[in-house]
């Protein structure tokens, strides 16, 4: 890969097909990319500023969703209630 492409000023500032590219980037982020997607990803991010920004923003959002999203505690009696209802079914 051309090292000169690694700064933002070297990347193209407009993406010709944002919708398609962004969907593809998100698929890769979700672990759904094809086998060769890692290579394709690096190339795309090196060449296209909107793709570079989109990928990194989505990556951070995915991480905070996974790590910070408020978890709701399961009411303690719920499992017992379910088991009891099932006993009644039998």
């Amino acid at each position: 890969m051309d090292k000169n492409l690694n700064t933002s000023s070297e990347r193209k500032q407009n993406c010709s097909d944002e919708n398609k590219c962004f969907e593809l980037l998100e698929s890769i982020l979700d672990g759904e990319g094809a086998v060769d997607s890692k290579e394709m990803l690096n190339e795309k991010l090196a060449k296209c500023q909107p793709c570079f920004e989109h990928y990194h923003l989505e990556k951070v959002i995915k991480e905070i969703l996974q790590n910070k999203c408020t978890k709701h505690m399961v009411p303690s009696e719920l499992a017992a209630t379910i088991r009891q209802k099932i006993q009644e079914l039998k």
Partner: peptide, 27 residues
């Protein structure tokens, strides 16, 4: 013709500083 400029100015640092409740509420 979706205007992506609406979201492109959201910064990575701003997202990193958000609290769990803010993320949850947005979701």
């Amino acid at each position: 013709n979706v205007d992506y400029s609406m979201t492109s100015d959201l910064r990575v640092d701003a997202v990193k500083d958000m609290l769990g409740d803010e993320i949850s509420n947005a979701l």
